[in-house]
Amino acid sequence: KLLSSIEQACDICRLKKLKCSKEKPKCAKCLKNNWECRYSPKTKRSPLTRAHLTEVESRLERLE
């Protein structure tokens, strides 16, 4: 599967780190437990900047 097509777990399953069936409108866990089942939009991760990478590398060197 391509990364862009990976389905996201519902908010509660993601928060509780449960295996989500990803069914809509309610996944199996939410249906069974009568929880409100919501699927928040995916958040875009910002790409690493060179400055951040350099900072992490220098912190790693100090720890070694």
Rank of each mutant, 00 (worst) to 15 (best):
S21C: 08
I6V: 15
T54H: 04
Q8F: 12
A9D: 04
K19L: 03
K17G: 02
V56R: 07
C37P: 13
K26D: 05
W35P: 10
S46E: 14
S58F: 12
S4N: 15
E23C: 08
L18W: 11
W35F: 13
H52A: 05
E61Y: 13
E55D: 09
L18T: 15
K32Q: 05
L31A: 11
E23V: 09
R38P: 05
R45F: 07
C13T: 09
A9L: 10
L2E: 11
C13G: 15
L3E: 12
K1S: 05
E61L: 09
K26M: 10
R45Y: 05
H52F: 11
V56H: 07
S40A: 10
E64K: 05
K17W: 11
L60C: 13
T43R: 11
R38C: 12
E55F: 13
K26E: 11
P25E: 06
S5V: 15
K29Q: 04
K32C: 09
C20Y: 04
L31T: 14
S5Q: 15
K22D: 10
R62T: 09
K19S: 01
E55G: 08
E36Q: 15
C13V: 06
P25Y: 07
K24Q: 13
T49M: 08
R59V: 04
K17P: 01
E36C: 03
S5L: 12
P47I: 02
C20F: 03
Y39G: 01
S58N: 15
S4Y: 13
K22R: 07
I12R: 14
C10P: 08
L18D: 00
I12E: 10
N33G: 11
L53W: 02
C30Q: 07
E55W: 09
L60G: 05
K29T: 09
H52I: 02
K19N: 04
K26R: 10
P47A: 08
L53V: 06
S46T: 15
C30S: 02
K17D: 01
L48T: 07
R50I: 04
S5H: 14
S21W: 00
K16M: 01
S40V: 13
L2S: 13
C13K: 02
Q8R: 15
N33V: 02
K16C: 01
E7M: 15
L15M: 13
S4D: 14
R50V: 11
L53F: 00
E55N: 12
L31M: 12
L48P: 01
Q8W: 15
R50D: 02
L48I: 01
K29W: 04
K29Y: 02
E57A: 02
L15K: 14
T43K: 15
C30Y: 02
K22N: 04
K24R: 13
R38K: 14
S40F: 02
P47E: 09
K22Q: 06
L48Q: 02
K1M: 11
N34V: 13
N33Y: 07
K22W: 00
L15G: 13
A9S: 14
R38N: 03
L15S: 14
C10V: 00
